[in-house]
């Protein structure tokens, strides 16, 4: 009992930190949502572009650039990464997933070059960082925690509002149409290459921006920061989707989808925390992410097939046959009479 209480208080004290981290990854996940859900493009650039965003933000801040400017630059750096993937795909005809892997690998070198070393710390004591995990610690009192988390929530809220507006515009429509049915889009006069490019640029810009916040939050940027980022992003998108559908059903609109993507990221980090509290070493983090994504991807499929399986068909047909045999025994006499 004492152990359980101990774990519980441990979970509670880590809660603000985990929610904050989840929200920052939620920004990334919203970027992933654009490519994965709207454009229908498996974009693995994310693993590289999040670190690029973090690296650019930290290096600029260390060079005395104002924090907001550095954050805008992290967005732009992400945009460039998306542009690279997009150009390889649309101009050079390299399949999307492969183009994004190429960018991701190339970015590893680029990120190292930007950072100059594999890990670059940035201290909240020396620079007026946007957020820091130091202030989300419970020890700082509720005011500090709420203020730090409020800033991140504000960013997520603004991002959702901006995307709601953008995907409601004429140009936003073209991206949605491209992702849904490129043939139809072209027949309606849409340059699908351009809209693919714009969506990739926007998505990775948001991912880079998330990287910039994450690096400030954790107080450093590491060249391996983005390893598996796409899996966490997908986990958030999928958890949010499954959950949102269950709650909203038919009324699961765009704002709710984006909001639940961010909530999905928070849930991911909370579940991760719970798993870690069972004593599982943190080396198993990535294994855990993969399992979570696999489970949530499998859920809709299994749900569908359980209602619609051959085994079920066999069972039903066996039942029907059994019933039929009983009935025909009764009806047998009547049929014979008819035959006469």
């Amino acid at each position: 009992m004492d152990i359980l209480l101990g774990k519980l208080s441990q979970f509670a004290s880590a809660l603000p930190g985990n929610v904050s981290q989840g929200l920052i990854w939620g920004v990334l996940a919203i970027g992933v949502y654009i490519t994965y859900k709207i454009l229908d493009f498996a974009d693995l650039t994310v693993d590289g572009s999040i670190t690029t965003g973090g690296a650019v933000a930290v290096v600029l801040i260390l060079h005395g650039v104002p924090v907001p400017v550095a954050m805008i630059c992290s967005f732009l750096a992400g945009c460039l990464a998306g542009l690279a993937t997009g150009l390889m795909n649309t101009l050079l005809g390299i399949p999307g997933i492969l183009a994004s892997i190429l960018t991701q690998i190339a970015l590893y070198s680029v990120n190292l070059a930007v950072m100059g070393q594999a890990n670059l710390p940035v201290s909240v004591d020396k620079f007026p960082l946007f957020v820091s995990q130091r202030f989300t610690a419970v020890a700082n009192g509720p005011q500090s925690v709420i203020f730090e988390m409020g800033k991140i929530i504000l960013v997520v809220g603004l991002l959702i509002a901006l995307l709601y507006w953008f995907f409601g515009t004429e140009y936003g429509f073209t991206i949605r149409a491209t992702g849904c049915n490129a043939n139809m889009a072209r027949a309606q006069g849409i340059n699908t290459k351009k809209s693919t490019l714009i969506a990739l640029v926007l998505s990775n810009g948001i991912v880079g921006f998330a990287g910039g916040i994450l690096a400030q939050y954790s107080g450093n940027v590491d060249v391996n920061m983005g390893r598996g980022a796409i899996v966490i992003g997908l986990a958030a998108v999928i958890i949010g989707d499954v959950l949102g559908r269950a709650i909203f059903g038919k009324h699961f609109n765009f704002v709710a989808r984006l909001t639940f993507t961010a909530i999905g990221a928070i849930i991911y980090f909370l579940v991760l925390q719970i798993v870690m509290l069972t004593g599982l070493p943190s080396t198993f983090n990535k294994l855990f992410s993969a399992v979570i994504v696999a489970i949530f991807l499998a859920v809709p499929y299994i749900k569908k097939t359980s209602k619609n399986s051959y085994r079920r068909a066999a069972r039903n047909s066996a039942k029907a046959k059994l019933l039929g045999a009983e009935n025909s025994e009764e009806e047998g006499a009547v049929e014979n009479a008819d035959a006469d």
């Binding site: 515009t169 004429e170 140009y171 429509f173 073209t174 149409a177 309606q188 006069g189």
Partner: peptide
Amino acid sequence: LAKRRGQMRGLRW
């Protein structure tokens, strides 16, 4: 989408 076939598409609704 069809209504805007052949037109520039911008940031209007």
